[in-house]
Design a protein around this nucleic acid. Structure first.
Lengths: 336, 336
DNA sequence: TTGTAGGCGTTATCAG
DNA sequence: CTGATAACGCCTACAA
């Protein structure tokens, strides 16, 4: 920067002024500076900047698992929002690297990160640690919430989505259902479960008669739980499986195929999220769409507001979900 | 840090010494420092550190598209290698944010990034810009190479993989093939194409008689090109489509399904990459596996070597590919 | 073994 | 409008 100043025949402060256009600088000098910057191919040193500015212009994005396209889409949304503000996004995949949540707390404390977008989602989330994280700096939760603490969060209306898809399955005549739920630790899991149960109750069926199997939102657990769910003779076992996310539905599908159960003829299947492949597999998956990219974009936006100490006008509305009717649900064998 | 020094009753340099364990510090003082650090919950300021050390302990990872699971897996490998060295990974998705490659050059120049792992892959890559990038700092290419310049790169043996899968298709009796290739600008596309053609030539068939349709490695282009490829009556049109990656094969599958062509009975299909879903769709996709996670891990490792100016013992071997025989290829209708 | 002091590259506060 | 100059927080000779 000193070189630039020399080359332009001005002082370093002038250079700084034109680079940030703070202060006011005469036209000719400004032009000379810009020219010098160009000629010397000068780029300000980011470390020095953030030392002075006390901000790294960088946020963290914690995701459980990139192979889940839902997370990948959220990530793209976050990226976009960050790019609009010239902020960098560092990717954190705790389960691929086994870095504990405390690690991110440190990143926040050391000013390496100005804030964090946190996506639990495969359930490793210990609420205590997230709260700790939130004390170290601004944190926004995506598709999740910690009951009793109103942390900033961007969510979709999971309960409603679950209710609608369960109602749809029931309307097609299914009476013996099983639920493959998400991790116990997640608020979202409970929301979806509630939604399913409300729909079941609304049909006048016995809610407690519907078995629940708790998975971890990953594909293998879907397969495993489908195996446990689909026991008994054809007229005893469930005719439909409500899966709390698409990946587990894929796992269930895989299991069915392996043991020769036809989907949807022998067992109907639903998912949740509507990842791109859901529409592509055979049978295409009936599921609930969550606007993943928008949620990521919204979460990052909210985080930036928080970082500027803006009033943030209270919790944002849940994003709407929409039922995607496709081929993986048909009436059960003996239906009217 | 001054506070810590005070609290421990030592000087700041002593604190610095214990924190980096450089210098040698008496046991009792060291303990007092550590204690003070703990009590005050002190975390060193990263900006100041990198200002002094001239290194941000951060690398960039440029990927075209996270919805492609191949890239997601590479990303996980990079994450892992970085985590082992306590380095952060900044995710860059140029096409989601439309930041030009020049932007990353700036990041390197400003010391915000110490190096870059670059994954072209959907073909937006202008070789000139990548070379420019490489002048600004260490860069490792993944699954790609720039002919004429030996930039550090981690690749798989695409040509061999392509040759094998084409040979397999031919061995099943197919004689009318079409190729859905990758972007013209990518070295990898040419490798795969060469592989296909070598296998075709080896069968004594006319290489130029096999039509080539050039796609962009995304799903929609697969559908579109399948439409263009599959014209003519059943005994004129191709009986097998060789797709240069899995995503385009998915697109082709989608198209076939839409127009009522059965896969594999009417049209056989092959992919390349072996992303996780490839095994899951129906029919499961015959494809060539590239060890994505290992490639990411290897690329990041290579980058770190480069960053330390280590000799880097010349270009690493290509990773081996392996043919995955599955259900999307069967002998053509009229086969012996 | 320990402490003092200078500097890393910017920005911001002052006088001029 | 412009230019010295003092931080920002840490590391590292160098001196004690």
């Amino acid at each position: 920067m000193i070189d630039v100043a020399k080359h332009a025949g001005v002082s370093v402060s002038t250079v700084s002024y034109v680079l940030n256009d703070s202060g006011s600088v005469g036209e000719s000098r400004r032009a000379r500076v810009l020219d010098a910057v160009h000629v010397l191919n000068y780029t300000p040193n980011a470390a020095a900047r953030s030392l002075k500015r006390r901000s790294a212009s960088t946020i963290g994005l914690v995701v459980p698992d990139l192979a889940n396209q839902f997370f990948a889409l959220v990530t793209e949304g976050v990226e976009l929002a960050a790019a609009e503000r010239d902020v960098l996004v560092v990717l954190c995949v705790p389960e691929a690297t086994d870095r504990p949540t405390e690690y991110y707390t440190r990143l926040l404390n050391s000013n390496r990160l100005d804030g964090v977008v946190y996506l639990p989602g495969s359930g490793g989330m210990a609420a205590r640690l997230v709260l700790e994280l939130a004390e170290a700096g601004p944190v926004v939760l995506v598709d999740e919430r910690i009951p009793g603490f109103d942390m900033p969060a961007v969510v979709a209306d999971s309960r409603r989505g679950a209710r609608e898809i369960a109602a749809y399955v029931l309307a097609r005549g299914h009476r013996r259902l099983a639920i493959i739920g998400g991790p116990e630790a997640l608020w979202t899991s409970h929301q979806r479960l509630s939604g399913y149960r409300e729909a079941i109750a609304a049909r006048g069926l016995d809610v407690d008669g519907v078995p629940l199997f708790v998975g971890d939102h990953r594909q293998p657990s879907g397969a495993e739980l489908a195996e446990r769910a689909l026991v008994g003779s054809p007229d005893e076992r469930p005719t439909a499986l409500l899966c709390a996310n698409d990946l587990m539905a894929f796992g269930a599908l895989e299991y069915c195929r392996r043991v020769g159960l036809r989907v949807p003829e022998d067992v109907s299947l639903t998912g949740f999220d509507d990842v791109p492949i859901a529409a592509m597999i055979t049978p295409s998956l009936t599921t609930v769409r969550q606007p993943a990219r928008d949620m990521g974009y919204g979460a990052a936006g909210l985080l930036f507001d928080l970082m500027l100490d803006e009033p943030t006008g209270q919790a944002p509305e849940p994003f709407p979900t929409t039922l995607q009717v496709r081929d993986s649900v048909v009436p059960p064998a003996g239906a009217a």
